[in-house]
Design a protein around this nucleic acid. Structure first.
Lengths: 220, 220
DNA sequence: CGCGGTTTTGAACTAAGTCAAAAACCGTGG
DNA sequence: CCACGGTTTTTGACTTAGTTCAAAACCGCG
């Protein structure tokens, strides 16, 4: 289903090994900069986001070890359309666009896998567009939690294996800091989730998924 | 930049010619249905959209002659994630997924072009996500008008060569019928656009583009 | 113990959605 | 040519979800 499918075919492009290290808070590349390479994440967490004005942003997705980002720079336009910022110290394998393109030229199988990967991304993107346009905030937060659960899994204690700032969570859900709380509060009261400082645990998956499908309740 | 780049490489896949005709209002395929083929549009206009509940939808994009749609059905999941509805009677060339996949297997160049096309789509999608999440309605409408201008061009009279229902325009901008009006009214008053029944003309492109960049005004 | 950064809460405000009803518009058939 | 019923457009008044602003509480950490 999701970007885990990226496994397997990636080693092929990691021939040209240029390891780059980045520290928490560092910006790996920025919207508008000339795109010169893509990154394969060996360790750490990165957020990929798009700015709006000085202080507003929408986080498009989070990348963890084993995933890659920066490939958006490959299309016709030659500048990065997004920014990548380090959330947890990371080690990346950098591949220049030139090299990557040559690899694509040479390796048909890789191209197919890469295409398939992007078709899935597109599907996700389109679902998210709809959510941002039509769903209410609480639903988008529920959605995000389910996504995080799926992408990062849970620890022994049942809490999602990723600790984000509320600021970032809000920026992913497409809302403000404050609104994010109030909604999280409600979700806790409703018994859908449990929160301990920066940790989130899903208690009642059904209740969260329900928000993905409010149509039924709204029209009744 | 955009899907015009689809030209050229499409003929390759139009070998298997199964012409299908659809009338205005017909649904070509529906969200959730098993995806069995993709469509190359020879004539007419199609809207590709995603439902939310019974009566809400977000239009993802419009396709005109020369473009193709339904390719979202190619990814891992085997159901269409979107619905395609005919806006103007159309003639399509239908290509089964099987055949298309085989063609992809065999034709590396096509795969590369197809990949590139989708990278561009993804870029557009991500920009739109940000717009839906952070931009105000008027800005999204401005954006839509610029998009329509670009995709469909203008006639001798300067009006955009596509007549949509306001309902659909609203559904593309991610807002309601009524709000759409009020905003269009304002745009007219501001001298940015001109409206004659179903026709829209852009008068002051700068003013529209300005809404794409409100950051400057907001922070001042 | 005080300081900078988060998190929480409260209250005022606003953009946009909803509802409802009037006006314009459009084809169709008498 | 006009009356009609249906659809689309327009306008107005009201409601509300979500944002904004501002101040309090909390929480490590030197």
């Amino acid at each position: 289903m999701c970007r885990h499918s990226s496994k397997g075919w990636l080693p092929a492009i990691v021939e040209e090994r240029k390891i780059k290290i980045f520290k928490r808070g560092e910006v790996i590349f920025k919207e508008g900069e000339k795109a010169e390479g893509i990154y394969f994440l060996l360790q750490g967490i990165v957020k990929v986001h798009k700015q709006w004005g000085e202080d507003r942003e929408l986080i498009l997705h989070f990348s963890k070890a084993g995933e890659l980002f920066g490939y958006r720079g490959l299309s016709d336009d030659t500048v990065y359309p997004v920014t990548a910022t380090v959330l947890e110290d990371c080690k990346t394998c950098y591949v220049s666009i030139d090299f990557f393109n040559k690899t694509l030229q040479a390796n048909h199988e890789l191209t197919l896998q890469f295409l398939k990967f992007h078709l899935n991304e597109l599907r996700r993107a389109e679902k998210r567009m709809r959510n941002l346009a039509l769903m209410e905030v609480k639903g988008r937060i529920a959605d995000m939690l389910l996504m995080l659960h799926k992408q990062f899994g849970i620890g022994d204690d049942g809490y999602i294996r990723l600790q984000l700032k509320r600021q970032d969570m809000a920026a992913y859900a497409g809302t403000t800091y404050e609104t994010f709380f109030r909604m999280v509060n409600e979700l806790v009261k409703e018994g859908a989730i449990l929160v301990k400082s920066k940790q989130f645990k899903i208690i009642d998956k059904k209740k969260l998924e329900h928000y993905d499908n409010i149509e039924s309740t709204i029209n009744s």
